[in-house]
């Protein structure tokens, strides 16, 4: 079944293949033809529609289901794909070349960053949830800690540890395992936390590049109008 996630994955592959097409194909006039212009305009509109997501998120404060990231990704892949078709792989002008490169970098940074960021975030959430469970389990058995101190702490007298019966020893072993799991999970959580903050910076780079991209798109449109829009045959 074609879910939004599958469609976006297919679009991502389609975009990468389409962009790589410049190695094999180039059309001198398609970008300036009526069809080329229309596709370019449609692509630019879709690209500008990607800004709806950050606007809702930052300005209106809508998150989660009220502001799905999937739609942002859909616009962010469909728009640039149309723009690649519009360019027909003709990248002769400096502005065109820079706009194309900025667009590819933004899309790729979005795909990679988005995918990894979501994966890390999901893992982190699961880990934190598990950590909470473990910690509450540990808290419930807090009174057992004192009893197990003789086993767990190395400076206790030998007679004191020998006095502990087998059942108590097993309980202490389980408690020890619990504590160790908490410790390991806390270490993993802190690692994923730092990875998450690293990807937050990655997404900041994505945002900064997006700024550059939209500036270049506006410049491209302006120069086309300034030097005269001509519908090439």
């Amino acid at each position: 079944m074609m879910t939004e996630k599958n469609i976006n994955a297919l679009l991502a592959v389609f975009f990468v293949l389409l962009a790589a097409g410049f190695l094999f194909h180039r059309s001198a006039t398609f970008a300036g033809s009526p069809a080329g212009h229309l596709i370019g305009i449609a692509g630019a509109v879709l690209m500008f529609m990607t800004l709806i997501y950050p606007f809702k998120k930052r300005v209106l404060g809508r998150k989660g289901r009220k502001n799905p990231l999937g739609t942002h990704i859909l616009y962010g892949l469909a728009g640039p794909s149309l723009v690649v078709i519009h360019s027909a792989h003709k990248l002769d002008s400096l502005i065109g070349l820079l706009t194309f490169l900025a667009m590819v970098i933004v899309v790729v940074s979005g795909i990679v960053g988005g995918y990894l960021f979501r994966s890390v975030n999901r893992t982190l959430k699961e880990q934190k949830k598990e950590l909470e469970t473990l910690k509450s389990a540990f808290q419930e058995r807090k009174e057992e800690i004192t009893a197990c101190e003789a086993l767990l702490l190395p400076d206790r007298e030998k007679e004191e540890t020998e006095a502990i019966d087998e059942e108590q020893r097993n309980r202490c072993a389980r408690l020890y395992e619990l504590a160790r799991s908490i410790s390991e999970l806390e270490y993993a959580t802190s690692f994923f936390d730092s990875t998450k903050s690293m990807f937050s910076k990655w997404m900041k780079v994505h945002h900064v590049l997006t700024l550059l991209l939209f500036s270049l798109v506006i410049l491209h449109i302006l120069t086309v109008l300034y030097y005269g829009l001509r519908w090439l045959p």
């Binding site: 400096l94 550059l212 030097y227």
Partner: peptide, 25 residues
């Protein structure tokens, strides 16, 4: 963000003034 915006605008102004940047061939 402020630095990036300023740099983007500066780059675009320079590209606009540098006529050859828009030359399609």
């Amino acid at each position: 963000y402020v630095i990036a915006s300023t740099a983007s605008v500066a780059l675009c102004v320079w590209l606009f003034l540098y006529e050859e940047a828009a030359e399609p061939g």
